[in-house]
Write a protein that binds this DNA or RNA. Structure first.
Lengths: 202, 202
DNA sequence: CAAATGACAAAATCTGTTTTTTGTCATTAC
DNA sequence: GTAATGACAAAAAACAGATTTTGTCATTTG
């Protein structure tokens, strides 16, 4: 493990130590000095790789969001019917968030914080998700799967209806609810969404 | 005004002074001592009327929630078709919250706090709203307006779909969005809800 | 010259102390 | 006997000084 760690480029190593530290102790008890100590380097050197503590923390968040985003891209690039894609995208996001919330609550907290404050990582992630959904909607409109043609109304509608299952703070507020229950409810909401998008009038 | 204030029963007077203090300075800068001073009495006497500061603060919240609740009861007791009632209830709640958020942000904050922590006031208020919605749904199911008959699925579905427009923290998160825009979007969500409840399968 | 150090200023956090606040109650006032 | 006081203990908040942390940079190292 020590070998694996030191074989990685310095920036990745710092990133992983930072993630581990936050995972264990939470952001509030994480300092650049402590991370540098764990990496056996002066804290000043950390700043050669990350311009600020905030940037480092955001990089930790980005780290786990990236694979989610590429998963979404795969769904989007697939051959399925528009609504199936839409449903799979939304479910995948919901599930990924919930997984992280359960597995690494402290790291999920970083994402919530970034979302609420509208920080770069969160904004970019949201834009990517939005872009995928938009692409699928436009696809579905072109193919006739979605008779309504006003993307400027359909897009917000999708996010408004799914808000509870997709919005980071709302997701955390539901931790106590059983996973199965949430998923059942989200399924029904998605069914409602399907019916709505399948009709001509929004 | 001074005359009006002193003509009211002591508990109401304290309540109003507390509300005014919080409205102006926020909860964090509000003390029982300061409220007592404004009421020209010893702080110990405040505790004759409210068992704790928390109880007093919750009473302030309850104060503005009560008229909303009675408004909902009126809608619910009215003669309109089930979905019209449902829509009017949900819109009324949304509008009332948004109004308070804009008019008295600090007081709305008390409500958010109480909601997030699941305090009595918030829980009771939520249960009342839920009871009204449930009544309207059952009404609509009985009258055939809502073909689906599983209230245990319909009720969460309504709140899930409307979450963004009804959930206190989500409402605050949208302060920056123009009122008209939010209302337009909520209208479309309600339209989707109508269609869903109007179909046999949930 | 790319990687890292260590010294530094400004800002934030911690720590121990004083003050205020919360909540109780025996006593007073009417 | 209901309304209010004022004194009190425990808890919380405010404060001030010491310490740590953040972020920069001139210098060192390989």
């Amino acid at each position: 493990m020590a070998r694996a760690a030191s074989s990685e480029p310095t920036d990745v190593r710092i990133l992983e130590l930072a993630a581990e530290h936050i995972r264990r102790h939470g952001l509030e008890r994480t300092t650049v000095v402590a991370i540098a100590r764990e990496a056996a380097m002066s804290h000043g050197n950390v700043y050669r790789y990350f311009p600020s503590k905030e940037a480092l923390v955001d990089a930790v968040t980005d780290q786990w969001l990236k694979p989610i985003e590429s998963g979404l891209r795969d769904i989007c690039d697939g051959p399925d019917p528009a609504f199936d894609k839409l449903e799979r995208i939304l479910s995948a996001v919901q599930r990924a968030y919930r997984n992280k919330l359960e597995a690494d609550p402290r790291i999920f907290d970083l994402f919530i914080e970034a979302s609420v404050l509208g920080r770069g990582v969160a904004r970019k992630h949201r834009l990517k998700l939005q872009a995928e959904v938009r692409a699928v909607l436009e696809d579905g409109m072109a193919s006739g799967a979605f008779p309504a043609h006003d993307i400027r109304r359909a897009l917000p509608l999708v996010f408004d209806i799914c808000h509870r299952f997709i919005n980071p703070p709302s997701i955390r507020a539901d931790v106590e609810l059983a996973r199965a229950q949430i998923e059942g409810r989200f399924e029904r909401v998605l069914r409602a969404l399907r019916r709505t998008l399948g009709s001509a009038v929004l």
